[in-house]
Design a binder for these strands. Structure first.
Lengths: 122, 122
DNA sequence: GCAATAGGGGAAAAATTTATCCCTATCTGA
DNA sequence: TCAGATAGGGATAAATTTTTCCCCTATTGC
């Protein structure tokens, strides 16, 4: 496992939430789990751009941070289900706020993001 | 300037907001600018763990994404002031929601984050 | 002349995060 | 018997982000 060399700042609320929500797919994972997509394979189908590997890694981090729990059924073929913890549920409204702002400004955001990409790759 | 090799996903609101808010210091920059700390040196004092260089880079990105504007005064020594655009102001409540959740769960978050760090560096 | 102030930026290194590739199991259905 | 589904993990490469280091501009004050 990778060992951090630079310790994170944990001074204020923004630092703290950043520490648990940063990660390319974490917010989406929480969102889809909340929507009832609890099995790894479902999540992978919902987030096809992520590789299985990263999703597993990020799910593990979410679990370590107590936002989700993992239930492994002793059956074959294996079955696993993730659920939000009570704590995890409290972060959903915050994610919803992020998504709503993004949706409300969809066109403009797409526009400025693409413009910047083009000038980068000028 | 670094040229991306993997294009970002811009499918949903969450992708879009992620694209403009990701960056280790961006949220804090927006927050402090909103609080009235508009000059680069002030922002640097507010965020001492970031180097000048990164703050400049991230401020430039926020500017490209039209969340802030930069005003350069033709004086010596130079004076620069950043302000939120109208668009940028609309994202502040979302950031506030992030910060409030983080503050409300401060102890627990610090606890789980530190626990995970220790087991990583076990 | 030299330091301090205020704001920048290039290049390269280091840190961190993601992606790629390959392997392990077992059961079901064709 | 072979393909596919289900879940997982190690090793390594590649991508991306952040840090480090060093340099530049111009004026004011001593």
């Amino acid at each position: 496992m990778y060992e951090r060399k630079i310790l994170p700042n944990l001074n204020c609320g923004l630092d703290l939430i950043g520490e648990v929500l940063y990660g390319k797919w974490k917010i989406r994972l929480l969102w889809f789990i909340d929507q009832g997509h609890q099995r790894p394979s479902e999540l992978q189908r919902k987030i096809p751009d992520a590789t299985r590997r990263v999703l597993n890694i990020q799910l593990k981090e979410l679990e370590d941070h107590e936002l989700i729990t993992k239930k492994i059924y002793a059956v074959v073929p294996p079955k696993v289900e993730y659920s939000l913890t009570e704590f995890g549920k409290t972060v959903i409204p915050v994610i919803a706020a992020l998504g709503m702002w993004g949706d409300a400004n969809e066109e403009r955001l797409r526009d400025v993001i693409l413009r910047r990409l083009k000038s980068e790759n000028n």
